[in-house]
């Protein structure tokens, strides 16, 4: 087992590395890594592109305890290749989720990903599909799969679709959840459709506050490990197996969203329709004030995911 670095629970989740996040999130000294960096299970494909490998291929997986409850846990490293899914990176998560399904163990996923790693795109795309299948099977078996989103790479591409398969999502303001990234949309559709350099617009469209308000995430927390830890512990106390009725409820929920907000051009239009008192000031509001504004106004998934 590799010693985790010390990390102060109150420092920024956004700025921390995957290993620092784990150290601050989990019960002290409870983490045991599977296929740690000393195993040197690296990408067999990056060499072709003359790119450096990382010993853990950008994801740390293992078992741990959270508030004394046993869990499986995985953390993506958003600084290495943008946290993207490659063959080994993805297979580590697939194996963990399959074991979770077999042993009915809850899983906590610390997302930090730009999506598929282009240098091994086919392997990465397929890994995402295998991960989704393993999550669905684990959830049908009764496991909770809880996603934490607040890393610097966000949760993009196939990572966003994986997040959409989780039973519970916890997001910070810095967290972004999306399939097509801002640059990808702008490249394909033009700057009139999506101005990727307008950071405020990007956050209004796919940022943590917007996702929380439309029911795309279940908890909104401060950008630190304390916030993520408390929300994860609370989420682990709930049971939400994946059933037909859950998906039927999600069908209604997602249809309702299109009915209610489908004509919106901007996050501000959506928040106005929600009845938020000060939609323009919302991006600048601190967590407590934001949660107060969101209370009774936001769309709540209520387990329909």
């Amino acid at each position: 087992m590799t010693a985790l670095p010390h990390h102060n629970a109150s420092t920024s989740w956004f700025e921390a590395t995957a290993r620092q996040r784990l150290a601050a999130l989990l019960d002290h000294k409870s983490f045991a890594e599977f296929l740690g960096p000393e195993q040197r299970e690296t990408s067999p494909h990056l060499g072709l592109f003359d790119l450096p490998r990382q010993f853990d291929d950008g994801i740390v997986v293992g078992r741990a305890r959270l508030d004394n409850r046993p869990i499986f846990v995985a953390a993506q490293e958003g600084r290495f290749m943008g946290g993207a899914f490659g063959e080994v990176h993805g297979a580590k998560l697939t194996g963990l989720l399959r074991a979770a399904g077999i042993h009915r163990q809850d899983v906590v996923l610390l997302f930090d990903t730009g999506g598929v790693r282009l240098q091994e795109a086919n392997a990465g795309e397929l890994a995402i599909s295998e991960i989704i299948r393993a999550i669905v099977e684990a959830r049908i078996a009764g496991c909770s799969v809880i996603g934490l989103i607040g890393g610097r790479a966000g949760c993009y591409g196939g990572g966003g679709i994986i997040a959409g398969c989780c039973s519970h999502l916890i997001v910070s303001e810095q967290g972004r959840i999306s399939v097509s990234g801002p640059e990808v949309i702008e490249t394909n559709r033009g700057v009139e459709e999506f101005d990727s350099r307008d950071r405020a617009f990007v956050w209004r469209t796919m940022g943590g506050k917007h996702r929380y308000l439309i029911g795309g995430a279940d908890d909104f927390v401060n950008d630190n490990a304390d916030g993520f830890r408390a929300a994860t512990i609370a989420a682990l106390a709930k049971r939400q197996p994946l059933t037909t009725s859950v998906l039927e409820a999600e069908q209604k929920r997602l249809a309702n969203r299109l009915d209610r907000f489908g004509q919106a051009q901007d996050g501000i239009d959506v928040w106005t329709a929600l009845g938020i008192t000060d939609p323009v000031g919302l991006p600048g509001s601190a967590t407590e004030a934001f949660l107060e504004q969101a209370l009774d106004k936001r769309e709540n998934a209520n387990g329909a995911r």
Binding site: P5, G36, P37, F80
Partner: peptide, 14 residues
Amino acid sequence: WQAIAGVVASGNLE
């Protein structure tokens, strides 16, 4: 018996 520091990124190392 083991420790790891840093990440592989531009201008960085593990």
